[in-house]
Write a protein that binds this DNA or RNA. Structure first.
Length: 260
DNA sequence: ATGGCGCATACGATGCGA
């Protein structure tokens, strides 16, 4: 099965692009971030017409996540535990059934955290600690579990074309990468890193400064796999050609293939 | 070397992103 993650930067502005990509790539399950609309405004009909079930956790103007799945969606979770005062729509999790058993998928839009230091950076680090605790709970279930989304973390210098441009940025600060390593250390596999140790593979290019034309990209969209999911990993790819389509998102889809 | 964009809201200008 094909599982993808894609920060679309507004699903309403991107619906034609999104349906074009869905028809081309034919993924079985897609985690979307930054849909930037309330649940009622999500273009559900256009997506369902392509054969997908939809779980939406929307928010006005900002954030918002959704999961699209060809298989029926079971057991939806709409929030990341650990802070009842957190109103941002940044987490949705589902379980779907496959021929090889159930797969649990968490879709995250991890806070950007800039400017750092400051309250936004504190929020990011707090969110990452909540995510670590939640991931630990899910790993204890010993299921096939995929944690996918826009992590807003550049894991290593080789994940940026110009790492020196990011040294003071919330996406790349030492504390951010340390929190990332604590997450990985639970026993999660970074799917793209497992498939390619070399680096130079990016998932985001800023709209500004000709970043795309110069390939000034960063890798911040990730799929992390539990051991039971990693055992089934067959392939990983980044659909970077989508960045050259008309009116693109600044992120592109990342896709993994799991056995059966 | 520098600066360069795009979205939502609202209809001008600001917040936000990365």
């Amino acid at each position: 099965m094909l599982i993808a993650t894609w920060n679309v930067n507004s699903i309403k502005s991107r619906i034609d692009l999104a349906t074009r990509w869905l028809q081309e790539a034919r993924p079985d399950l897609v985690c979307l971030q930054e849909i930037k609309c309330v649940d009622e405004a999500f273009p559900r009909a256009e997506i369902e017409a392509l054969g997908y079930n939809v779980a939406v956790h929307g928010q006005k103007s900002y954030n918002g996540v959704a999961i699209l799945s060809r298989a029926p969606i079971e057991d939806v979770v709409m929030r990341l535990p650990g802070d009842d005062a957190d109103e941002h729509a940044r987490y949705v999790e589902v379980v779907v059934s496959t021929d090889r058993g159930a797969v649990r998928v968490g879709c995250i839009y991890l806070p950007n955290g800039n400017p750092a230091p400051g309250p936004k950076y504190d929020y990011k680090l707090g969110w990452m600690e909540r995510l670590r605790r939640h991931a630990a709970e899910r790993l204890a279930l010993e299921e096939a579990f995929v944690l996918a989304g826009d992590f807003n973390v550049i894991p290593a210098p080789k994940d940026a074309k110009r790492p020196d441009a990011w040294v003071d940025d919330a996406l790349f600060l030492p504390e951010t990468r340390a929190a990332w390593r604590r997450l990985i250390a639970l026993g999660l596999t970074d799917a793209l890193r497992a498939a390619d140790e070399n680096g130079g593979v990016y998932t985001f290019w800023d709209y500004q400064a000709g970043a795309w034309q110069k390939d000034h990209g960063i890798r911040i969209d990730h799929l992390l796999l539990s051991p039971q999911a990693a055992d089934r990993l067959l392939a990983v790819r980044v659909d970077r050609h989508v960045r050259s389509w008309e009116r693109p998102s600044d992120h592109v889809p990342v896709v993994i293939e799991l056995a059966a």
